[in-house]
């Protein structure tokens, strides 16, 4: 059991991934809220005020993980949830770093607080979660 049980919002369009990740987080005593897309995720983020967000990047929508992350970090609409740490979790390896880079080639999108490659190692995920909650 973890020292600090938390509420974690998982936004991912893959139901199997949500189920697997929920099992990992639940094993450490965290409460999981799952959302199947950015729109639902946005609503849950504002209504449930989770301690941390796990966010998939590529979802079948133009309003994808990049866009949601950028909105949370910059838009007035999310002012109340601005400080919620966002952890990108994605299988799109080579573009994950590229698009939120502030250097050359980046699109100037706001960076997430951290990111993990899919599939995530359960111990890695729990360690990151722990680190964010300690802050």
């Amino acid at each position: 059991m973890t020292k600090t049980p938390a509420t974690i919002l998982v936004i991912d369009d893959d139901p199997d991934f949500r189920l697997a990740v929920t099992a990992i987080l639940a094993s450490a005593g965290h409460k999981v809220i799952a959302a199947s897309g950015p729109e639902e995720g946005k609503a849950r983020l504002l209504a449930d005020r989770p301690d941390l967000v796990l966010l998939d990047i590529m979802m079948d929508s133009l309003f994808d993980g990049y866009a949601l992350c950028h909105a949370v970090k910059t838009s007035e609409e999310f002012a109340a949830a601005r400080e919620t740490p966002i952890l990108f979790v994605s299988a799109v390896k080579d573009i994950a770093g590229a698009r939120f880079g502030f250097g050359e080639g980046g699109e100037g999108l706001s960076a997430p607080d951290d990111y993990l490659d899919k599939p995530v190692k359960p111990e890695d995920l729990l360690a990151r979660v722990e680190r964010f909650l300690a802050k």
Binding site: D16, F17, A20, I24, A91, K118, P119, P122
Partner: peptide
């Protein structure tokens, strides 16, 4: 594939 791998990890 990633979803299957994720289940295996769990």
């Amino acid at each position: 594939l990633v979803a299957v791998q994720q289940y295996f990890e769990v």
